[in-house]
């Protein structure tokens, strides 16, 4: 999606105040995240964090590489299933469970990626959607997922034998750590030389090819990493809510992640998290009313695409960059 993010070459000698402002914003955000569980319901916050990570993982692919995956729920839900199964049935610890979930999602990502990257643009989107539907049916039929019931009552366990995760606040700080690790990974990738090549592919794939880059290998790498991070989000979500179900692998879930990334701002580091916060809050609020949630989500989708393609963070950046 090359025209979603315009590359505004900022002033080379960035004003010192802008840097200070950025650090201050980061510090405020950190403080807010640390004290939030004292004010808000921790499970709600953890839900936001999980979806923020999921949307950010998708954004790594969509916003930075320009590939619209309509099948990322497979990795999110797949990670959830693998972790839930390992923790509940095989009795492994939460950390091991999450690592297995991430590994499983990465393998799924590699397998789907190999096929999907053979097409571009809309075809890529349709292919990922169809392959994730294939995965959906596999999860539906697989003996370990309990079909419609899902894997329920997944124990959160004790982290490293010390921290009792059944406590919501302890669990919150664990999830916050996972989120921070995930976001840090994404930040490292997009600011690395590897990330620069990936962005070059987004801007002009033909040129990247003619410069001698093995574009498909880059795409597949990003796809797999993005799948692994989506898996990390799903695995963590499975522990938070102690359940893994078919909803997590459905295409509606893929669509929600896209909406979060789009609403927040594609190709921005913090956008998808902002989008996830808005959508999850909205869902939580609407769940208590009789308003049909899907219709509202659809309306937000339409508004985002028609009027708001730069997203929340994109609009904010525009204002803060204006002299």
């Amino acid at each position: 999606m090359s025209n979603t993010t315009t590359h505004v070459p900022g002033p080379a000698q960035s004003l010192p105040s802008a840097r200070v402002l950025k650090l201050a914003a980061f510090a405020i955000l950190a403080v807010v995240l640390l004290v939030a569980p004292a004010v808000l319901y921790p499970v709600f916050l953890m839900k936001i964090l999980c979806f923020a990570l999921f949307a950010s993982a998708l954004n790594l692919l969509l916003g930075y590489t320009g590939l619209l995956s309509f099948g990322h729920a497979t990795f999110f839900g797949g990670g959830a299933y693998f972790t839930a199964y390992c923790v509940k049935i095989l009795d492994v610890g939460p950390l091991t469970g999450i690592l297995i979930g991430v590994g499983g999602a990465a393998v799924l990502g590699l397998a789907i990626g190999v096929i999907a990257i053979r097409r571009q643009g809309i075809y890529f989107a349709m292919t990922t959607l169809a392959l994730s539907q294939l995965a959906y049916f596999c999860f539906l039929r697989a003996p370990f997922t309990n079909a419609e019931d899902g894997i329920q009552n997944v124990p959160r366990g004790t982290l490293l034998g010390i921290f009792d995760l059944t406590d919501h606040v302890t669990m919150y700080f664990f999830v916050l750590t996972v989120f921070a690790i995930g976001m840090f990974t994404i930040w490292r990738i997009v600011t690395s030389p590897f990330g620069e090549v990936v962005k070059a592919i987004r801007e002009n794939e033909q040129r990247a090819i003619s410069l001698g880059y093995n574009v498909n290998r880059y795409k597949l790498s990003v796809f797999t990493v993005s799948a692994a991070l989506a898996g990390l989000a799903g695995s963590t979500k499975a522990l938070v809510f102690q359940i893994a179900t078919l909803t997590d692998v459905s295409w509606q879930m893929s669509g929600e992640a896209i909406l979060m990334a789009l609403l927040g701002g594609l190709g921005t580091l913090t956008g998808p998290a902002a989008g996830a916060t808005v959508i999850v809050t909205m869902q939580n609020y609407l769940a208590a009313t009789s308003v049909p949630v899907n219709v509202v989500i659809g309306v937000v989708f339409v508004i985002s695409v028609l009027l708001f393609r730069k997203g929340i963070v994109g609009v904010f950046q525009k204002f803060s960059k204006a002299p």
């Binding site: 999606m1 090359s2 025209n3 979603t4 619209l68 643009g121 809309i122 989107a125 669509g255 896209i258 789009l262 049909p292 949630v293 899907n294 219709v295 509202v296 989500i297 659809g298 309306v299 937000v300 989708f301 339409v302 985002s304 695409v305 028609l306 393609r309």
Partner: peptide, 22 residues
């Protein structure tokens, strides 16, 4: 614009129409 926006917009249509009928 990038044709992906068309896909996303019509996805929004689908959610509204299906959610509305539900």
């Amino acid at each position: 614009l990038d044709p992906l926006y068309g896909l996303l917009l019509t996805f929004g249509f689908a959610l509204i129409l299906e959610g509305g009928m539900q």
